[in-house]
Design a protein around this nucleic acid. Structure first.
Lengths: 211, 211
DNA sequence: ACCTGAACACCGTTCAAGT
DNA sequence: ACCTGAACACCGTTCAAGT
């Protein structure tokens, strides 16, 4: 694979002055806008620069290439999702397993919904980009959060928390993605809201020993 | 969205002579090879043509643009998966719900595994391409197969087969994708083999009324 | 009928010149 | 310090010329 090392994806320089901070912010916002109006195929460096009101050269001063720009946008988005998981995990620490399943799946879904329709656009970015390092990091943090939560369950103990954690995380992210990516209609989202907690509860109860 | 109508994705002409059928076959095979060695970013029309041993012009005689080529490759792949689902559905018609869950999830997973590592490469293609019409069709056929299977369960009846079908299909495809796309290691696959049937069984039993 | 490959438009990226 | 935009290399696509 012709894959750039992850370090190459970092921003070229961190803005130190108010003017350049505003520039980066504008580029950031413009990227999402262009993604939404022109799609991934229409996402052009020239177009992003124009929308942000700067020249291409300026953009390249902050992001060494297009990938780095998208990487930064994606990172910002994913941090928000991890935060939501973490909050839910604290709220349901020591709760009953069924409540955990509900709380976790709802928190994840709401975090995604809060940033719709950016969520849809960014799935494409995540798939196309060389993001393994970033995704791996986010996944690891999510799973640490979930494992900690499950271990604290008041009414259940797990034979293999590690496996259950990975499976649950995969099911949660995969299922939501499968829906949002192809059909983000109100009915599809209603289905997710209703069935996702059922799936999580059923799987967790099947994997745990009551105590 | 700057999206070409789906008709524009069809091959420009169907090969009528043995020579051109061989040409198309070579282009097809070359596409997957280039995808595997150079990644999606490195997938160039020139490169595919060279690998297939034809000129760019020849390629454009069969596929009006790069998207059409990828679309055709993806279509071929997806048909194979639907076939696997259909076979499993026939094998488990009228069986017990738990056996259906096992059979369906195993069949789906095996179909994906059989075409690894093409599976991984094509996830990116599917995400980037304008494939809604194709995906919608495949999804509809998968869900018809699943709905028929569930309705035939010997020991259970569903409150809302439609919802359960959509949710199960989403869980199945989404979960497998979430794993294969980011980590197709033997351990990850072993996890899937063990946990996917558990998930399916648990969710189906939670959604059904025993009879 | 089918194939070739130079030619064209466009995009990512750079860098000499500006403030 | 930060910004500009013409210039370069490369890719998707076409089409006049070949067999």
């Amino acid at each position: 694979m012709p894959v750039a090392p992850s370090d190459a994806l970092k921003p070229r320089k961190t803005p130190r002055q108010a003017r350049s901070a505003a520039t980066v912010e504008a580029i950031f916002e413009a990227t999402i806008q262009v993604l939404l109006t022109d799609g991934y195929a229409g996402l052009t460096t020239t177009r992003v620069a124009a929308r942000a009101g700067v020249s291409v050269g300026t953009m390249y001063q902050y992001f060494p290439h297009k990938q780095a720009l998208l990487y930064a946008v994606l990172e910002d988005y994913l941090e928000d999702v991890v935060l939501a998981m973490d909050e839910a995990s604290q709220r349901f620490h020591g709760a009953k397993l069924a409540d955990m399943a509900d709380g976790l799946s709802r928190a994840y879904l709401e975090a995604k919904m809060r940033r719709m329709p950016g969520s849809r656009a960014l799935y494409v970015v995540a798939a196309e980009l060389e993001t393994s390092r970033l995704i791996d990091d986010i996944v690891a943090r999510c799973e640490a959060i979930i494992a900690g939560l499950l271990a604290s369950a008041r009414d259940a103990v797990f034979v293999d928390v590690g496996t259950t954690t990975v499976a649950l995380r995969t099911m949660l992210t995969g299922t939501v993605r499968a829906v949002l990516e192809t059909d983000a209609s109100p009915e599809a989202i209603a289905m997710l809201r209703a069935e996702l907690p059922v799936m999580c509860r059923a799987y967790l109860l099947a994997s745990a020993r009551a105590v």
